[in-house]
Design a protein around this nucleic acid. Structure first.
Lengths: 116, 116
DNA sequence: CAGAATCCTGCGAGATACTG
DNA sequence: CAGTATCTCGCAGGATTCTG
């Protein structure tokens, strides 16, 4: 609630732009992609998303949560456990994220391609 | 050829990331979207893409061209005419750009939504 | 008309250190 | 384990001016 500046939901522009703002950014696509098979813990995501810092992962997850694309479930245990999962809305994005990843893989040439 | 720094095609990472690097950025999605119906002139694009500067439009178009997503056809006339068009590869992205825009429109609520 | 050349700025994102 | 809190900086992207 502190960042009043860049609010996606204000005076919007174009649907394509809007969508890109919600799933764009450096890591959002990848995060969604790695949530495709269901529930993931924070630590799992950190391991899956190589090259992302804790800060960015947290930030991305929070944004996705605010945008109602993922849910965050905190288990009050010791040690703490937090699980993330796509919402229905987020899930609607999957087909197209996967499409995109297939396109990317194809473009890269299958040899160099890594699943992620 | 001057910017040796950020080269997409070097030591790539994840297919999703790769794809996002090619169609990400602030305006790329929109440009592709506006080329969906075929040939567009530079000036047309400028008018269609409200809020984009000449510099950015040119830059985006050049990047898309280098990435083999659009073709650039210069007519040696006075006044000059330059037409842009999606390549086959670029065209493969359309389904998903359109999907994305529909998703975006839906999310925004149809009232506020503008075609672009 | 379709750009190229400059200059300039904000903020996206990295590194590092600390905590319930 | 799953985060926060700072500090810092590069570069994406804007404004403006000039040109074939």
């Amino acid at each position: 609630m502190k960042k009043t500046g860049k609010n996606i939901h204000s005076e919007t522009i174009c649907a394509v732009d809007y969508a890109f703002q919600r799933i764009g950014g450096k890591h959002k696509g990848r995060v969604i992609y790695h949530l495709r098979n269901g529930v993931r813990r924070y630590g799992e995501l950190r391991r899956l998303l190589t090259g992302i810092t804790a800060k960015m992962l947290t930030q991305v997850l929070r944004e996705l949560e605010q945008d109602n694309l993922v849910t965050r479930h905190v288990y009050l245990e010791v040690p703490p456990r937090v699980e993330y999962q796509l919402t229905d809305t987020g899930r609607e994005l999957l087909p197209f994220i996967i499409l995109l990843s297939e396109w990317g893989r194809k473009q890269m040439g299958m040899e160099t391609a890594v699943s992620c």
